[in-house]
């Protein structure tokens, strides 16, 4: 019983982490029909920037609790700098091209950003760590559940995931700009004809998506050692989550993250040797049963 509880807790924590990373990807795909491989680079940029900001913070001997503000600042800065830069500087010239070409454009961007990160931060693994080894991860302390102790930081992840999901749902369903956005998702040309500024919608969507990737990176930074190539590791995971849920679907991303998190936690506790491909098995099974993922809208038929 206690092991089952551990599986659930581990699964939820991992699912929250996955959701934060995947939600920006599904948002961008939903609106712009771009499967953004550079999402992995934005995640990595968020993590590296978080390290730099936190190091500066700790360097001034400020209170460790304030490092959370630095994580948030890093995510916002990366989102506001790279989102507009990529969208205005590159992607807007590519709209209307084939989906596959757009994937490859972001792949090219991913390759370029990988080396940019290397040139800026070097290849040494970096740690978010204060002068006495304190990190945002450990500073909050632990709680006990089913005989195991978990850092409260995990609850921060869960909280951020829930808040992000709730905020996006609210914006999409309850606000004017959200409704406009849904119109753009449904039919870009018609929306433009009705006077919606599609360019602006894309601009805002991509910036928000980039920021969400950076939030994922910034929140991950204190729990890992930040290394080059970390973006490549998460991008395929995020793809899997988004595809399982149904591309472009917000509740789909949440459910996809939840399923992957649970399956992974269960396999680690009961059958550790299956962990390596659990995610892809889930993805294959889901796609075989529901070819377009769990949440997929009806498609307009073209003749």
């Amino acid at each position: 019983m206690s092991q089952l509880l551990a599986v659930v807790i581990d699964g939820i924590v991992y699912a929250s982490w996955l959701f934060i990373i995947a939600v920006g990807l599904t948002l961008i795909y939903g609106v712009m029909k771009i499967l953004n491989i550079a999402h992995g680079s934005l995640y990595a940029l968020g993590a590296f920037t978080a390290v730099s900001f936190c190091t500066a913070w700790f360097g001034h001997n400020y209170a460790a609790a304030g490092s959370f503000a630095m994580l948030a600042a890093a995510a916002i800065v990366v989102g506001l700098v790279f989102g507009p830069l990529i969208e205005r500087g590159l992607l807007r010239f590519m709209y209307g091209k084939d989906e596959v070409v757009l994937v490859l454009v972001t792949y090219a961007l991913f390759l370029i950003l990988e080396d940019v990160i290397k040139l800026v931060w070097g290849v040494d693994p970096l740690l978010v760590q204060g002068p006495n080894g304190e990190t945002p991860y450990s500073v909050l302390g632990n709680f006990e559940a089913s005989g195991l102790s978990y850092p409260y930081y995990n609850l921060v992840l869960v909280g951020v995931a829930v808040a992000t999901g709730a905020a996006l749902t609210w914006v999409l369903t309850r606000t004017r700009s959200g409704k406009l956005l849904i119109a753009v998702i449904h039919d870009r040309e018609m929306s433009a004809a009705m006077g919606i500024d599609v360019g602006r919608t894309y601009f805002v969507t991509f910036t928000v998506g980039a920021m969400l990737a950076a939030v994922g990176g910034a929140l991950t930074a204190p729990t890992v050692s930040v290394v080059t190539g970390m973006g490549a590791e998460v991008i395929v995971m995020a793809f899997a989550v988004v595809v399982i849920g149904g591309l472009g679907s917000l509740p789909g991303a949440a459910l996809g993250a939840f399923i992957v998190g649970m399956v992974r936690a269960a396999s680690i506790h009961y059958k550790p040797e299956l962990e390596l491909f659990s995610v892809y098995l889930v993805m294959a099974v889901v796609l075989i049963v529901r070819p377009k993922g769990l949440f997929s809208g009806a498609e307009v038929r073209k003749i």
């Binding site: 190539g229 970390m230 590791e233």
Partner: peptide, 11 residues
């Protein structure tokens, strides 16, 4: 390169 070891540590 997994990065996240929460469940492994619990196990």
């Amino acid at each position: 390169g997994a990065g996240q070891y929460g469940a492994e540590i619990s196990a």
